[in-house]
Design a protein around this nucleic acid. Sequence first.
DNA 1: AATGAATGAGCGTTCATTCAT
DNA 2: TATGAATGAACGCTCATTCAT
Lengths: 189, 189, 189, 189
Amino acid sequence: MKEKIINTSIHLFDKKGFTETSLQEIVEELGVTKGTFYYYFKNKQELLTDIHLEFIEFLLRNQNAILSDDTKDSEEKLRSMIYMVIHSIKDRKKSARIFFREMRNIGSDYMEQIVQKRDQFRVNLQTLVEDGVEKGEFEMDLDADMVTRGILGMTNWSYYWFDPDGDVSAEKLTSIYLKIILNGIRKQE
Amino acid sequence: MKEKIINTSIHLFDKKGFTETSLQEIVEELGVTKGTFYYYFKNKQELLTDIHLEFIEFLLRNQNAILSDDTKDSEEKLRSMIYMVIHSIKDRKKSARIFFREMRNIGSDYMEQIVQKRDQFRVNLQTLVEDGVEKGEFEMDLDADMVTRGILGMTNWSYYWFDPDGDVSAEKLTSIYLKIILNGIRKQE
Amino acid sequence: MKEKIINTSIHLFDKKGFTETSLQEIVEELGVTKGTFYYYFKNKQELLTDIHLEFIEFLLRNQNAILSDDTKDSEEKLRSMIYMVIHSIKDRKKSARIFFREMRNIGSDYMEQIVQKRDQFRVNLQTLVEDGVEKGEFEMDLDADMVTRGILGMTNWSYYWFDPDGDVSAEKLTSIYLKIILNGIRKQE
Amino acid sequence: MKEKIINTSIHLFDKKGFTETSLQEIVEELGVTKGTFYYYFKNKQELLTDIHLEFIEFLLRNQNAILSDDTKDSEEKLRSMIYMVIHSIKDRKKSARIFFREMRNIGSDYMEQIVQKRDQFRVNLQTLVEDGVEKGEFEMDLDADMVTRGILGMTNWSYYWFDPDGDVSAEKLTSIYLKIILNGIRKQE
DNA sequence: AATGAATGAGCGTTCATTCAT
DNA sequence: TATGAATGAACGCTCATTCAT
């Protein structure tokens, strides 16, 4: 039941927004009553927190798997990471959009934890970029922080428009973005 | 008064969200009563629509000014456009964030108009990219649509983190992003 | 309207209890809607606080009037005070019972203020008793605090059973209690 | 278990009130579930009824023991009775306060029975007073009903302020009140 | 003897909106 | 131009209670 409530809520929160979705709508969709909801969740915010945590932890888990894969060099790791973000749209597009849009509605007690994990994700990416430069794999004469944020901008934005079933595949889009980045940060003669 | 209501609302909508901000809070901040609000606006949605229209029209106006400036070549136009988006953070950061986050709460009658203008902005940018290629200014062997969306991702995302008063100036950030793009889309030998 | 809400609420709070009376019942009785209630009161607790404050201030006002009447000696003042408490049942029986029973439901911010006034009333009575002894009007070899609380017990309790329209009049009851007290506290030979 | 539920409930009902205490709080305090409660009680009201009955029957039991003690004269019986009420604060203060405050929340089926016992207690006291007069032990020219209610007022009120561990002992307070009454009702020459 | 899942009704409160003045 | 009183619908949430296991 708890899982069903979460899934239905993800769908509705993405479609209408967190505040704009009433508990009534959620439970009606499931054919249960409000009491049932409160049997599984302390309140509406806790449900949103659950969704946020699940999403950011999924990202971090995958990121760590990629980073600790010693068979990959920096470029391959970066490619995997971009692909991971873009590709996860298939299952988590809605969670992702909720994550970016509804941060505000998280209670301040969990906010800190979530913000910290979100920053961790960015810092991990930045470290990968810097490592690649250090190892001589990437050429770069640009500020690593700005570059990292640029990468995240490009990829995260895809949640708002990319259709994995459209003309361009996730692999194709990954290649395009990877190329722009690797080529783009290269030192100019 | 109308202008004051709009400005206060922009501040509050950005801080708390559109649905999460009550009319009561808006008029209280201004020291007037709810009746006053309804003298100037048909309803709450109309206020949001006004904010959206003002913002997207500001972007389009500036974009057109740049595009029709014949003293600039394609690269200079692209630089100006990136700079314009990033730089407008100074005054319109809040409007921008409201624009991206609260699209959902626009009434369907104005939705179409706004979506059309938003798409127009993207298409104009794409056209500029394609023109630059055609004129031989940009080298590119990548899908122009994907590239354009990448550019928008990078720049729009800056609304969520860029601090124009921080270590990195808007000019500096523009240069970094412009370099990544021009270099990044270049054909490889 | 505010006055009407208060009066209706006093009636219902006395009959059913504060928590047991819903806002719905109050406004239904008045033929208005809940919104109207919240136009006049911040919340349900504030209404109760209003009732409490009005009652205790009424008592203190009357008490002060009696105490500052220089034409009365201590016995006459004590009689007036007992009569005042018993007699006020006519108009304020309900308020009084709410006051004694629903103290718990007062918000902690006003609690202090109300408790202080309630204690003030008791201390004023105790001072009157002590003054009477000092002036030689009352004979007494008993603890003034305990005596005062005994007086208050007798008189306050009357709110739960005394019927001013019954066989015994308020004047009669006052005389009985005054006699028990004056006689009762007298030093024994 | 039933006893534990009752004891916990007495504590909570006194602290927060009957309606203001939820079943959830009661069972949480005990570390059991709501189902357990409904195994031992038909509903919440029945629990309150149990508490009321236990208390009033305790009072009546003790009162009867005093009344049927032929070694005591009327004054000694009255003293014992006052002492019993005041002294029972030690163990039953909470039950007493619940009894006086939460009468309203008793179901009408048991109400009658409880009211009848409560009146019985008062009538027994009144009879004792009248007997004392008749036997020449008490002098009195006052209405026995009013006097009895005055006695009850003084003693019952002590539940709201008397601290058996404070400066004044229960024995001392009993003596004070007994003296006020016996002396107070005496015919004046 | 006790649990866990669920219900359904109701609660206090908030909100956008209306309208006579 | 602006106010003040009122509405009505909805909202998040709590509660006593039920019942199969």
